[in-house]
Structures are given as C-alpha cells and as structure tokens.
Amino acid sequence: MLDPQLDADGNLIHLLSTEGLSKEQLTRLLDTGASFIGVSDRDMKKVPLLRGKSVFNLFFENSTRTRTTFEIAAKRLSADVINLNMSTSSTAKGETLLDTVDNLCAMHADMFVVRHESSGAPHLIVDHLRRTGRNDIHVINAGDGRHSHPTQGLLDMYTIRHYKGDFEGLNVALIGDILHSRVARSDIHALKTLGAASIRVVGPQTLIPTDIEALGVEVHRDLESGLKDCDVVIALRLQRERMTGALLPSATEFHGLYGLTHERLKAAKPDAIVMHPGPMNRGVEIDSAVADSPRAVILPQVTFGIAMRMAVMSVLAGGGA
C-alpha cells in the first residue's frame, strides 16, 4: 500500500507520522533542521524560501506553543500565515472538515498545518486532496488525537542528536501518560528507525496501552528500573483533560510514584538529559528542581522545534526528502 505521505516517486510530500519514514528521510530532515538553526540567530530572522506561499494553520484543538512555533517557522521562511481557530469558526456552524478544506483551497492555500482531536483527520485531508487531484498542496500533522505528532517527534530526535551525538547505544525512557500521548508514539517510531539501543515506557498499568510491546519497547511499571542507565529521559504530561474514567487515583499519588525528582534520576546515567514536550505540570510529572536544572533541555527543545518545523515545511514544499 502506498504510504499517504509519499508521492508516486517515494518523495515525502506530506508529514503525517514518523512511522514509515526511513532512516535516510529522518536524517535528511534532521540535517536540514540543523541548517535552519542559524537563521533564528540572525538579526534578519527570515529567508525567502516560501515567499508568496500561503500556510493555513487549522487548529481544531487548542495549542499555543505548537501553533505559535509553526507560525514563527512559516514566517521565518517568508510565507504568509493564516491562523484559523476552528473551535470558533464555521465548523462550529456545522461545516464539515472537507468543506472547510475545499474553501481554503479555493483561497489558494499551499500548505495546511492541522491539529485535530480525532486521530486520522490529517490523513482524511490528504486522501481528499489526492482524490481531487490537488497534489501541490501539502499537509503537516500538528497532532491528531492519540495517534501522532510527527514534528514533536522530529524536534525530540533533533534534541537527542544535539546532546548525544548519535542514537546508537542510547537508552531512552518515556515516563508517565503513554496512553494518551501521540508524542510517545512519534518518538518511539523515530527512535526505532534511528537505531536507539533500548526504548522503555514507564508508567502505571492504566496509562500504558496494552499492545505497546509490539512497537519494540520495554514496559516498566517501576520508575527506578525504567530509568536505570538511561541517556535520555522524556517526561510526558499527564493529560487529565483526556481522562474519562478512573485511570489514576490522584495527581499527588502519580507524582509520588512516577514524578521525576533528582533523587530518582540517580538511577539514570549522570549525564542523562531530561526532556518534556510541554506544557509541563510542575510537581506532577516533573519536580521544579529537575525542570529548572542544567540537565533539563526543555527550552532548547522549543528553539529546535522552530528550526525543525522550518525544515519540514521547506522539504515538503521543495519536492520532498
């Protein structure tokens, strides 16, 4: 079956998931990201690559950081950016997703950045564009349901490579709410492809999907065993807004068992870095003392995220990786 992210020649023209991307494609994207880092350091934080292109941010679900970094990335590439807050727009008046897309295509959109609470919504748009022959319009998944958040996965890989040099031999732990985390899935697929030595998911049984071992990860219920000899520790936000049942006794109890503290991080390697996709709940999944310590690379993740999103946009618009 054709990967919907690729064109007939195998070039990446949409970014829907880190799953299915080859090591070469991932590496090419990371290398391209590295070349964009310098642009944001200049006085003139702009290059003309996407001049005249229109990028539509379609956010059906709120996200300040992701939407802002996509907006900054597109603007630093000289694109025109149109932000649509779908929760207050025509969707609320009953327009379907694909009707919205058709209307924006009629406004000559070149790229859609889509965040949706339903898994698969960006795929639906890609299928629709393909069916209607609009192959020059690109779609970037900015997070769909529990499924995927590929640009977060890419910026996490960029961060890991920046601090650790390579993926060979790395032990990486993802801690906490794996069940609701599209970031965890995106990271796991990318880490597998890039050759990390071991990938662990650590959390209470209720927050770990039952079939997760199939992705090639180790499951740990105990934080200390999960952190043992880790090079990279990724804390995930406890997504209480997505929790419908009694998955968790309380945030305090969660912190007591799985919250990252300096004491618990002693099980990891002394030079282990701590990452978090944000927004973080201090005192729940991560202690303030850890979040503010030199080993935390949470703010560099945000900076790298802009360069990675610039890289994704230019690779897609420029004919793919």
């Binding site: 290398d31 070349s35 004919g319």
Partner: peptide, 23 residues
C-alpha cells in the same frame, strides 16, 4: 554564505541536502 535558502529555482529543485551554515 550558503545560498541554498536564496536560490531562485527552489520550487523546481527543492532544497540542497547539504546546506552549510552561513557565517
């Protein structure tokens, strides 16, 4: 200078895979 981000044939040829930092 690496002119990759300033080329006039970006839409036909895409981005060079080895962009070097401009210093």
């Amino acid at each position: 200078v690496d002119i990759s981000f300033y080329r006039d044939d970006f839409s036909e040829r895409g981005l060079s895979p080895n962009v070097q930092p401009t210093t």
